[in-house]
C-alpha cells in the first residue's frame, strides 16, 4: 500500500476580518498592544468623565509622579525578565536618599559629588544582593526580603526616624524643575528608559537577559556568563532605585526616612500589567513603564473623581485586574475570530 500525500494547490485564504477588527488584530499582534489599548481606553474615559483630567497642571503632576516609580519599575522589570525579583529596591532608594541628605547637610559635601556617591551606593547595594544570590544560590525573593530589612533598618539607625532638612537648593532643579513645562524627573525617566530599551533590544546583553530568563540552565550550557549578568541586573536595579531616591530628595527638599516605602509592590504590579512575565523571559521595560502609567493614571482619577479613600484600593485593584484581563480576553477573542 502506498501512502500518498496531497498538497493543496493554493494556500488557504485567511478569513477576512471587518476593518475595525483588523485594526484591533494588528494592534494586539504587538507585544505592547494590550497595554497600549488599555491605556488609551482609561485615558479616553478619564478625559470624558473629569473636566480636571486633561489640564496642563494635571498632566505635569502625573508625569512627575510617574518618574520616581517609573525608574524603580525599569530596574524591577529587567530583573523580572531575568526571572528574579528584588524586594529591597524601595529600601535601597530610601537609603540612597538619606545618605545623600547626610552627605550634603551633615558632612557639607558638594551636592553633585554627593549625588554621584549615592548612585554608587545604590549600585553597590544592588550588586551585593546579586552576589549573595548567585554565590550562595539563594532565592532572590527570600534574600531581598531580608535585605530590605537590613537597608530599611540602616535608614532608621542613621536618622532615628527624623528627616534630614536643609538639603541644598542646588539639586532642587532635578526634582522640581521644568523644561518647557515638562518635569525634569520625567525627562530623566525617559532618558533611562531609552538607554535600557536600547540595551535590551539592540545589544547581545539584552538578548542574554531574555535567554537566561527563559531557561537559565540552557543559557549556562550555551556558555553565557549567567551569574555576571544577574549581578549586573541587580546592580542596575540598585542604581535606578538610588536615582529615584535622590530625585525624591531633590523634589521634597528634605531626606525623608519614608522614601521608598511605597516602591516595592507597585513596580511589580506595573511590570505585570505591562506584559512582563513573573516566570521570566517575556516582556519589556517599555511595557512595564506603560503599566506604571496605567497605575499612575488610576491613582490620579481616583482623586479627581472623588472616590472615597476606603474604596480606593478596591477601585484601583479592580481596574488593574480589568487592564490585565483586557489584554488576555482581546487576544483570545481575536484568535477565535481568525
Amino acid at each position: 500500500m502506498s501512502l500518498e500525500t496531497t498538497f493543496p494547490t493554493t494556500p488557504p485564504t485567511p478569513p477576512r476580518l471587518p476593518p475595525l477588527r483588523r485594526l484591533a488584530a494588528r494592534c494586539m499582534s504587538s507585544p505592547l498592544g494590550g497595554v497600549i489599548a488599555a491605556l488609551v481606553l482609561i485615558f479616553g474615559a478619564s478625559c470624558l468623565l473629569s473636566p480636571h483630567f486633561l489640564t496642563g497642571f494635571n498632566m505635569m503632576i502625573m508625569a512627575r509622579a510617574l518618574a520616581f516609580i517609573g525608574l524603580v519599575t525599569i530596574g524591577q522589570s529587567i530583573l523580572m525578565i531575568l526571572g528574579e525579583l528584588d524586594l529591597s529596591v524601595g529600601a535601597i532608594g530610601g537609603l540612597a536618599g538619606i545618605t545623600g541628605g547626610m552627605l550634603m547637610v551633615q558632612a557639607g559635601l558638594n551636592p553633585w559629588l554627593s549625588l554621584v556617591l549615592c548612585l554608587l551606593l545604590g549600585t553597590v547595594c544592588g550588586m551585593f544582593n546579586g552576589v549573595l544570590i548567585t554565590q550562595l544560590r539563594l532565592h532572590s525573593l527570600v534574600l531581598t526580603i531580608g535585605m530590605a530589612g537590613v537597608y530599611g533598618g540602616a535608614i532608621l539607625v542613621a536618622t532615628k526616624g527624623v528627616a534630614i532638612t536643609g538639603v541644598p537648593v542646588d539639586i532642587s532643579f532635578l526634582g522640581r524643575g521644568l523644561v518647557y513645562g515638562v518635569p525634569v524627573p520625567f525627562l530623566i525617566l525617559l532618558a533611562c528608559l531609552g538607554v535600557v530599551a536600547f540595551v535590551m533590544v539592540r545589544t547581545p546583553v539584552g538578548r542574554y537577559v531574555y535567554a537566561i530568563g527563559s531557561n537559565p540552565e540552557a543559557a549556562r550550557m550555551l556558555g553565557l556568563r549567567v551569574d555576571a549578568i544577574r549581578i549586573a541586573a541587580f546592580a542596575t536595579a540598585g542604581f535606578l532605585s538610588a536615582l529615584a531616591g535622590i530625585l525624591m530628595v531633590a523634589r521634597l527638599g528634605t531626606a525623608q526616612p519614608s522614601i521608598g516605602d511605597t516602591w516595592v509592590l507597585a513596580p511589580i504590579a506595573a511590570a505585570v500589567i505591562g506584559g512582563v512575565a513573573t516566570t521570566g523571559g517575556l516582556g519589556s521595560p517599555v511595557g512595564a513603564v506603560l503599566g506604571a502609567v496605567i497605575i499612575g493614571m488610576i491613582e490620579n482619577i481616583i482623586v479627581l473623581f472623588g472616590i472615597s479613600p476606603y474604596w480606593q484600593s478596591v477601585v484601583s485593584g479592580g481596574i488593574v485586574v480589568l487592564a490585565i484581563s483586557f489584554d488576555s480576553l482581546a487576544r483570545r477573542y481575536l484568535h477565535r475570530e481568525a
Binding site: H52, N58, T262, E299, V303, S308
Partner: peptide, 25 residues
C-alpha cells in the same frame, strides 16, 4: 467636604494626593 486620605503616612504619597486635589481647583 471631600475626604482624601493617603493609604500610607508617606510624604511623597501625600504630596501626590495634594497635587491631584489642586488639579480639581
Amino acid at each position: 467636604i471631600e475626604y482624601r486620605a493617603p493609604e500610607t503616612a508617606d510624604v511623597s504619597s501625600q504630596n501626590d494626593i495634594i497635587e491631584r486635589a489642586i488639579a480639581t481647583h
